[in-house]
């Protein structure tokens, strides 16, 4: 320990970054991988149960398209403000980021509202048969992700208007939150196809 053999000074390295330089980005990717795989397995379960029945959905018409399709449209459109939020955060534009986070919070609340209506018009209850069970479970799993992200956005929104908003690391948090919202949207598209289109066209 007494001999010190320094080969490089790292004092000039930056202390925060965006994307893959960022530790949180990797953590978020890790959890997205876990949750994404849980969605995949839930999807396989849906197909597995589908194979147990001759008619699908069993003894009932396919689920009503209205709210689910509206949800898909809302989520896809939300990508626009989401990309904007990511850009202003990466540019460390505090005013822009504050506005973007508020917009994303509003978007999140709207999608939660749509989801509420979506649940009310489903064609089966969770306990009526295995179809109803997996339908409610997949939709519920996605709703938990929506709730989590909206909650996270709400906390970020509060933070942005306190003195912590000035910390450049909060901008990294906003980009990570934007990344997670992309995941929530990305997960929904195949789920929509599975829950609403497969019973119609498969």
């Amino acid at each position: 320990m007494s001999e010190r053999h320094f080969v490089r000074d790292l004092s000039d390295l930056p202390t925060h970054g965006h994307g893959p330089s960022n530790l949180t980005w990797w953590g978020t990717m890790g959890f997205m991988l876990i949750e994404g795989f849980a969605f995949v397995l839930a999807g396989f379960t849906y197909l597995y149960i589908m194979m147990q029945f001759r008619h699908w959905p069993p003894g009932m018409p396919p689920p009503d398209l209205t709210w689910g399709t509206l949800m898909t449209a809302a989520l896809l459109l939300s990508l626009v403000p989401n990309v904007w939020a990511k850009r202003v955060a990466e540019a460390s534009d505090l005013r822009g980021t504050r506005r973007a986070v508020l917009v994303m919070l509003a978007v999140g609340l709207v999608t939660l509202g749509i989801r509420g209506f979506e649940f009310t018009v489903l064609n089966a209850l969770w306990d009526s048969n295995a179809y109803g069970s997996i339908l409610w479970t997949i939709l519920g799993l996605h709703t938990v992700h929506l709730l989590t992200d909206v909650g996270d956005t709400a906390v970020l929104a509060v933070l942005m208007f306190t003195r912590h908003g000035k910390d450049p690391r909060r901008m990294g948090d906003v980009t990570d939150n934007a990344l997670y919202w992309n995941f929530v949207v990305g997960a929904w598209v195949p789920i929509y196809a599975l829950l609403y289109l497969v019973p119609r066209f498969a």
């Binding site: 379960t45 147990q52 306990d127 048969n129 295995a130 069970s133």
Partner: peptide, 11 residues
């Protein structure tokens, strides 16, 4: 729920 109940399409 009926995931594993064969009577209701579970397995």
């Amino acid at each position: 729920t009926q995931f594993f109940n064969p009577a209701e399409g579970g397995d």
